[in-house]
Write a protein that binds this DNA or RNA. Structure first.
Lengths: 149, 149
DNA sequence: GAATTAGTAACAGATTTGGTTACAAATGTA
DNA sequence: TACATTTGTAACCAAATCTGTTACTAATTC
Protein backbone atom coordinates (compact mmCIF):
# COMPACT_ATOMS: atom_id res chain seq x y z
CA UNK A 1 0.00 0.00 0.00
CA UNK A 2 2.82 2.42 0.83
CA UNK A 3 4.23 1.62 -2.57
CA UNK A 4 0.89 2.20 -4.24
CA UNK A 5 0.58 5.59 -2.65
CA UNK A 6 4.12 6.58 -3.54
CA UNK A 7 3.68 5.50 -7.13
CA UNK A 8 0.35 7.28 -7.41
CA UNK A 9 1.85 10.52 -6.12
CA UNK A 10 4.79 10.02 -8.43
CA UNK A 11 2.42 9.68 -11.37
CA UNK A 12 0.35 12.71 -10.45
CA UNK A 13 3.42 14.87 -10.01
CA UNK A 14 4.59 13.74 -13.42
CA UNK A 15 1.23 14.56 -14.99
CA UNK A 16 1.20 17.94 -13.32
CA UNK A 17 4.55 18.67 -14.86
CA UNK A 18 3.32 17.53 -18.28
CA UNK A 19 0.82 20.39 -18.25
CA UNK A 20 -2.07 18.74 -20.06
CA UNK A 21 0.01 16.73 -22.49
CA UNK A 22 -1.15 13.09 -22.35
CA UNK A 23 1.42 10.69 -20.91
CA UNK A 24 1.38 6.97 -21.65
CA UNK A 25 1.45 4.29 -19.00
CA UNK A 26 4.72 3.07 -20.47
CA UNK A 27 6.47 6.37 -19.88
CA UNK A 28 5.01 6.65 -16.39
CA UNK A 29 5.99 3.09 -15.55
CA UNK A 30 9.51 3.71 -16.72
CA UNK A 31 9.77 6.79 -14.55
CA UNK A 32 8.29 5.10 -11.52
CA UNK A 33 10.30 1.93 -12.02
CA UNK A 34 7.38 -0.43 -12.36
CA UNK A 35 5.28 -2.19 -15.00
CA UNK A 36 2.85 -0.36 -17.30
CA UNK A 37 0.01 -2.60 -16.21
CA UNK A 38 0.67 -1.68 -12.62
CA UNK A 39 0.38 1.96 -13.60
CA UNK A 40 -2.86 1.35 -15.44
CA UNK A 41 -4.25 -0.50 -12.45
CA UNK A 42 -3.46 2.43 -10.20
CA UNK A 43 -4.80 4.79 -12.82
CA UNK A 44 -8.09 2.96 -12.67
CA UNK A 45 -8.44 4.05 -9.05
CA UNK A 46 -7.32 7.58 -9.75
CA UNK A 47 -9.81 7.82 -12.58
CA UNK A 48 -12.69 6.62 -10.44
CA UNK A 49 -11.68 9.24 -7.90
CA UNK A 50 -11.95 11.89 -10.59
CA UNK A 51 -8.29 12.87 -10.42
CA UNK A 52 -7.25 11.91 -13.95
CA UNK A 53 -8.70 11.32 -17.39
CA UNK A 54 -7.41 8.81 -19.91
CA UNK A 55 -7.75 8.37 -23.62
CA UNK A 56 -7.14 5.23 -25.61
CA UNK A 57 -5.54 4.86 -28.94
CA UNK A 58 -2.52 6.27 -30.67
CA UNK A 59 -1.32 9.48 -29.07
CA UNK A 60 -3.48 8.72 -26.06
CA UNK A 61 -2.52 8.64 -22.46
CA UNK A 62 -3.56 10.23 -19.20
CA UNK A 63 -3.91 13.83 -18.08
CA UNK A 64 -4.87 15.43 -14.80
CA UNK A 65 -8.60 16.01 -14.57
CA UNK A 66 -8.19 19.03 -12.31
CA UNK A 67 -5.60 21.71 -11.60
CA UNK A 68 -2.73 20.23 -9.56
CA UNK A 69 -3.19 22.91 -6.92
CA UNK A 70 -6.70 21.54 -6.31
CA UNK A 71 -5.68 17.92 -5.76
CA UNK A 72 -4.70 17.09 -2.21
CA UNK A 73 -2.73 14.11 -0.99
CA UNK A 74 -5.73 13.16 1.08
CA UNK A 75 -7.65 12.53 -2.11
CA UNK A 76 -4.80 10.47 -3.47
CA UNK A 77 -4.63 8.52 -0.28
CA UNK A 78 -8.34 7.84 -0.36
CA UNK A 79 -8.22 6.86 -4.00
CA UNK A 80 -5.72 4.16 -3.08
CA UNK A 81 -7.93 2.85 -0.32
CA UNK A 82 -11.33 2.72 -1.92
CA UNK A 83 -11.86 -0.85 -0.84
CA UNK A 84 -10.79 -0.40 2.74
CA UNK A 85 -13.32 1.56 4.76
CA UNK A 86 -10.74 3.64 6.59
CA UNK A 87 -7.13 3.78 7.58
CA UNK A 88 -7.52 2.90 11.18
CA UNK A 89 -10.50 0.68 10.95
CA UNK A 90 -9.48 -1.38 13.93
CA UNK A 91 -9.85 -5.05 13.14
CA UNK A 92 -12.58 -6.74 15.06
CA UNK A 93 -11.64 -8.91 17.97
CA UNK A 94 -13.70 -11.39 19.88
CA UNK A 95 -16.40 -11.93 17.27
CA UNK A 96 -18.61 -14.35 19.10
CA UNK A 97 -17.96 -14.76 22.80
CA UNK A 98 -20.46 -14.56 25.61
CA UNK A 99 -19.85 -10.90 26.26
CA UNK A 100 -19.64 -8.28 23.58
CA UNK A 101 -16.27 -6.89 24.61
CA UNK A 102 -15.00 -7.22 21.07
CA UNK A 103 -17.57 -4.89 19.63
CA UNK A 104 -17.32 -2.44 22.48
CA UNK A 105 -13.53 -2.45 22.25
CA UNK A 106 -13.71 -1.80 18.55
CA UNK A 107 -16.13 1.07 18.92
CA UNK A 108 -14.12 2.50 21.80
CA UNK A 109 -10.85 2.40 19.89
CA UNK A 110 -12.44 3.96 16.87
CA UNK A 111 -13.81 6.76 18.98
CA UNK A 112 -10.50 7.34 20.73
CA UNK A 113 -8.66 7.30 17.44
CA UNK A 114 -10.96 9.90 16.03
CA UNK A 115 -8.69 12.83 16.87
CA UNK A 116 -5.59 11.02 15.63
CA UNK A 117 -7.21 10.18 12.32
CA UNK A 118 -8.61 13.66 11.93
CA UNK A 119 -5.21 15.16 12.62
CA UNK A 120 -3.63 13.10 9.91
CA UNK A 121 -6.41 13.77 7.45
CA UNK A 122 -6.07 17.49 7.99
CA UNK A 123 -2.33 17.35 7.47
CA UNK A 124 -2.69 15.31 4.28
CA UNK A 125 -5.41 17.59 3.02
CA UNK A 126 -3.09 20.56 3.34
CA UNK A 127 -0.64 19.20 0.78
CA UNK A 128 -1.42 19.54 -2.92
CA UNK A 129 0.04 17.81 -5.95
CA UNK A 130 1.26 21.21 -7.12
CA UNK A 131 3.28 21.56 -3.93
CA UNK A 132 4.76 18.10 -4.36
CA UNK A 133 5.71 18.94 -7.92
CA UNK A 134 7.35 22.20 -6.88
CA UNK A 135 9.25 20.51 -4.09
CA UNK A 136 10.43 17.86 -6.52
CA UNK A 137 11.53 20.46 -9.04
CA UNK A 138 13.61 22.13 -6.35
CA UNK A 139 15.36 18.91 -5.55
CA UNK A 140 16.06 17.84 -9.10
CA UNK A 141 18.59 20.33 -10.41
CA UNK A 142 18.36 19.15 -13.96
CA UNK A 143 19.44 15.68 -12.93
CA UNK A 144 16.79 14.01 -15.06
CA UNK A 145 16.94 15.40 -18.56
CA UNK A 146 13.54 16.36 -19.86
CA UNK A 147 11.49 14.77 -17.16
CA UNK A 148 10.03 15.49 -13.74
CA UNK A 149 11.50 12.99 -14.34
CA UNK B 1 -1.70 -5.06 11.67
CA UNK B 2 -4.96 -3.33 12.63
CA UNK B 3 -5.96 -6.55 14.31
CA UNK B 4 -2.66 -6.80 16.15
CA UNK B 5 -3.03 -3.30 17.46
CA UNK B 6 -6.61 -3.85 18.54
CA UNK B 7 -5.73 -7.07 20.32
CA UNK B 8 -2.74 -5.49 22.00
CA UNK B 9 -4.84 -2.62 23.30
CA UNK B 10 -7.49 -5.09 24.38
CA UNK B 11 -4.89 -7.01 26.34
CA UNK B 12 -3.41 -3.96 27.99
CA UNK B 13 -6.82 -2.67 29.01
CA UNK B 14 -7.55 -6.07 30.53
CA UNK B 15 -4.26 -6.07 32.40
CA UNK B 16 -4.92 -2.56 33.65
CA UNK B 17 -8.23 -3.72 35.04
CA UNK B 18 -6.58 -6.71 36.69
CA UNK B 19 -4.61 -4.31 38.88
CA UNK B 20 -1.37 -6.24 39.17
CA UNK B 21 -2.92 -9.70 39.30
CA UNK B 22 -1.18 -11.91 36.70
CA UNK B 23 -3.40 -12.94 33.82
CA UNK B 24 -2.69 -16.01 31.71
CA UNK B 25 -2.49 -15.97 27.93
CA UNK B 26 -5.39 -18.40 27.87
CA UNK B 27 -7.72 -16.00 29.67
CA UNK B 28 -6.57 -13.09 27.53
CA UNK B 29 -7.00 -15.10 24.34
CA UNK B 30 -10.49 -16.10 25.36
CA UNK B 31 -11.41 -12.49 26.02
CA UNK B 32 -9.89 -11.24 22.79
CA UNK B 33 -11.31 -14.11 20.74
CA UNK B 34 -8.02 -15.49 19.54
CA UNK B 35 -5.49 -18.21 20.30
CA UNK B 36 -3.22 -18.19 23.37
CA UNK B 37 -0.13 -18.46 21.20
CA UNK B 38 -1.20 -15.38 19.28
CA UNK B 39 -1.45 -13.55 22.59
CA UNK B 40 1.97 -14.75 23.68
CA UNK B 41 3.44 -13.66 20.37
CA UNK B 42 2.02 -10.17 20.79
CA UNK B 43 3.13 -10.21 24.40
CA UNK B 44 6.65 -10.78 23.22
CA UNK B 45 6.57 -7.42 21.48
CA UNK B 46 4.94 -5.68 24.39
CA UNK B 47 7.55 -7.12 26.73
CA UNK B 48 10.42 -5.93 24.56
CA UNK B 49 8.82 -2.51 24.58
CA UNK B 50 8.83 -2.57 28.37
CA UNK B 51 5.07 -2.40 28.68
CA UNK B 52 4.43 -5.72 30.41
CA UNK B 53 6.20 -8.33 32.50
CA UNK B 54 5.53 -12.04 32.40
CA UNK B 55 6.18 -14.92 34.74
CA UNK B 56 6.22 -18.59 33.87
CA UNK B 57 4.97 -21.48 35.86
CA UNK B 58 1.86 -22.24 37.83
CA UNK B 59 0.05 -19.09 38.89
CA UNK B 60 2.09 -17.14 36.40
CA UNK B 61 0.92 -14.78 33.72
CA UNK B 62 1.45 -11.22 32.63
CA UNK B 63 1.12 -7.90 34.42
CA UNK B 64 1.58 -4.31 33.34
CA UNK B 65 5.14 -3.14 33.84
CA UNK B 66 4.08 0.46 34.38
CA UNK B 67 1.03 2.38 35.62
CA UNK B 68 -1.69 2.32 32.93
CA UNK B 69 -1.86 6.11 33.01
CA UNK B 70 1.76 6.18 31.86
CA UNK B 71 1.34 3.93 28.83
CA UNK B 72 0.25 5.75 25.69
CA UNK B 73 -1.28 4.26 22.58
CA UNK B 74 1.69 5.58 20.66
CA UNK B 75 3.91 3.18 22.60
CA UNK B 76 1.54 0.33 21.89
CA UNK B 77 1.48 1.25 18.24
CA UNK B 78 5.24 1.35 18.07
CA UNK B 79 5.54 -1.93 19.91
CA UNK B 80 3.43 -3.54 17.19
CA UNK B 81 5.65 -2.08 14.47
CA UNK B 82 9.13 -2.73 15.73
CA UNK B 83 10.16 -4.33 12.49
CA UNK B 84 8.79 -1.65 10.21
CA UNK B 85 10.82 1.53 10.37
CA UNK B 86 7.85 3.85 10.38
CA UNK B 87 4.19 4.05 9.58
CA UNK B 88 4.44 6.09 6.46
CA UNK B 89 7.75 4.92 5.25
CA UNK B 90 6.87 5.45 1.63
CA UNK B 91 7.85 2.45 -0.40
CA UNK B 92 10.71 3.12 -2.71
CA UNK B 93 9.94 3.55 -6.36
CA UNK B 94 12.25 3.58 -9.31
CA UNK B 95 15.16 1.84 -7.65
CA UNK B 96 17.65 1.88 -10.46
CA UNK B 97 16.86 4.12 -13.38
CA UNK B 98 19.12 6.64 -15.01
CA UNK B 99 17.86 9.51 -12.94
CA UNK B 100 17.35 9.36 -9.21
CA UNK B 101 13.75 10.48 -9.21
CA UNK B 102 12.78 7.50 -7.10
CA UNK B 103 15.03 8.47 -4.25
CA UNK B 104 14.16 12.13 -4.51
CA UNK B 105 10.47 11.33 -4.62
CA UNK B 106 10.78 9.16 -1.56
CA UNK B 107 12.67 11.81 0.39
CA UNK B 108 10.23 14.48 -0.75
CA UNK B 109 7.17 12.53 0.27
CA UNK B 110 8.69 11.69 3.61
CA UNK B 111 9.41 15.33 4.23
CA UNK B 112 5.97 16.43 3.16
CA UNK B 113 4.36 13.76 5.31
CA UNK B 114 6.31 14.88 8.33
CA UNK B 115 3.53 17.10 9.66
CA UNK B 116 0.88 14.47 9.01
CA UNK B 117 2.82 11.81 10.85
CA UNK B 118 3.65 14.13 13.69
CA UNK B 119 0.01 15.08 14.03
CA UNK B 120 -0.99 11.49 14.34
CA UNK B 121 1.80 10.64 16.74
CA UNK B 122 0.81 13.51 18.97
CA UNK B 123 -2.81 12.40 18.98
CA UNK B 124 -1.89 8.80 19.77
CA UNK B 125 0.51 9.92 22.48
CA UNK B 126 -2.29 11.79 24.19
CA UNK B 127 -4.30 8.63 24.84
CA UNK B 128 -3.33 6.35 27.71
CA UNK B 129 -4.26 2.77 28.49
CA UNK B 130 -5.95 4.06 31.64
CA UNK B 131 -8.22 6.23 29.51
CA UNK B 132 -9.07 3.31 27.26
CA UNK B 133 -9.88 1.20 30.29
CA UNK B 134 -12.12 3.90 31.75
CA UNK B 135 -13.89 4.39 28.47
CA UNK B 136 -14.44 0.66 28.19
CA UNK B 137 -15.76 0.47 31.72
CA UNK B 138 -18.31 3.17 30.91
CA UNK B 139 -19.57 1.22 27.95
CA UNK B 140 -19.78 -2.15 29.61
CA UNK B 141 -22.59 -1.82 32.14
CA UNK B 142 -21.90 -5.13 33.76
CA UNK B 143 -22.45 -6.93 30.51
CA UNK B 144 -19.42 -9.13 31.00
CA UNK B 145 -19.53 -10.73 34.41
CA UNK B 146 -16.28 -10.34 36.29
CA UNK B 147 -14.19 -9.18 33.42
CA UNK B 148 -13.10 -6.03 31.61
CA UNK B 149 -14.07 -8.36 30.34
C1' DG C 1 7.76 -35.29 40.72
C1' DA C 2 3.47 -33.36 38.74
C1' DA C 3 0.86 -29.60 37.08
C1' DT C 4 0.83 -25.18 35.10
C1' DT C 5 2.34 -21.45 32.33
C1' DA C 6 5.32 -18.68 29.27
C1' DG C 7 8.56 -18.78 25.10
C1' DT C 8 9.27 -20.11 20.66
C1' DA C 9 9.80 -22.72 16.54
C1' DA C 10 7.36 -24.65 12.73
C1' DC C 11 3.71 -25.32 9.66
C1' DA C 12 -0.86 -24.77 7.04
C1' DG C 13 -4.28 -21.86 5.00
C1' DA C 14 -5.89 -17.42 3.57
C1' DT C 15 -5.01 -12.97 1.88
C1' DT C 16 -2.40 -9.37 -0.37
C1' DT C 17 0.84 -7.50 -3.47
C1' DG C 18 3.66 -6.73 -7.62
C1' DG C 19 5.01 -8.22 -11.91
C1' DT C 20 3.77 -10.44 -16.09
C1' DT C 21 1.27 -12.14 -20.16
C1' DA C 22 -2.62 -11.94 -22.99
C1' DC C 23 -6.25 -10.03 -25.26
C1' DA C 24 -10.26 -6.95 -26.36
C1' DA C 25 -11.69 -2.14 -27.20
C1' DA C 26 -10.80 2.39 -28.71
C1' DT C 27 -8.40 5.80 -31.40
C1' DG C 28 -5.44 8.13 -34.62
C1' DT C 29 -2.93 7.78 -39.17
C1' DA C 30 -1.58 6.29 -43.65
C1' DT D 1 -9.85 0.10 -44.84
C1' DA D 2 -5.78 -1.55 -42.63
C1' DC D 3 -2.50 -0.86 -39.16
C1' DA D 4 -0.12 0.85 -35.25
C1' DT D 5 -0.79 2.56 -30.72
C1' DT D 6 -2.69 2.80 -26.24
C1' DT D 7 -5.95 1.95 -22.58
C1' DG D 8 -8.85 -1.49 -19.78
C1' DT D 9 -9.01 -5.69 -17.69
C1' DA D 10 -8.76 -10.50 -16.73
C1' DA D 11 -5.78 -14.17 -15.35
C1' DC D 12 -1.89 -16.12 -13.34
C1' DC D 13 2.49 -16.67 -10.63
C1' DA D 14 5.74 -15.84 -7.04
C1' DA D 15 6.67 -13.61 -2.86
C1' DA D 16 5.34 -11.84 1.37
C1' DT D 17 2.36 -11.54 5.31
C1' DC D 18 -0.92 -12.81 8.83
C1' DT D 19 -3.67 -15.90 11.81
C1' DG D 20 -4.42 -19.99 13.84
C1' DT D 21 -2.55 -24.22 15.32
C1' DT D 22 0.49 -27.97 17.03
C1' DA D 23 4.41 -29.21 19.43
C1' DC D 24 8.04 -28.79 22.25
C1' DT D 25 11.23 -26.67 25.90
C1' DA D 26 12.00 -23.88 30.05
C1' DA D 27 10.54 -22.07 34.31
C1' DT D 28 7.83 -22.05 38.38
C1' DT D 29 4.66 -23.55 42.03
C1' DC D 30 2.71 -27.13 44.88
Amino acid sequence: MNTRFAVATHILAYLAHAQGQPVSSEVLASSAGTHPVVVRRLMSNLREAGLVQSQRGAGGGTVLARPPADITLLEVFRAMRESDPDIFQVGSTNPNTQCDLGGVMQATLEDMFGPAIEAMRAALASITVAQVMQELAKRLPGACPGAVG
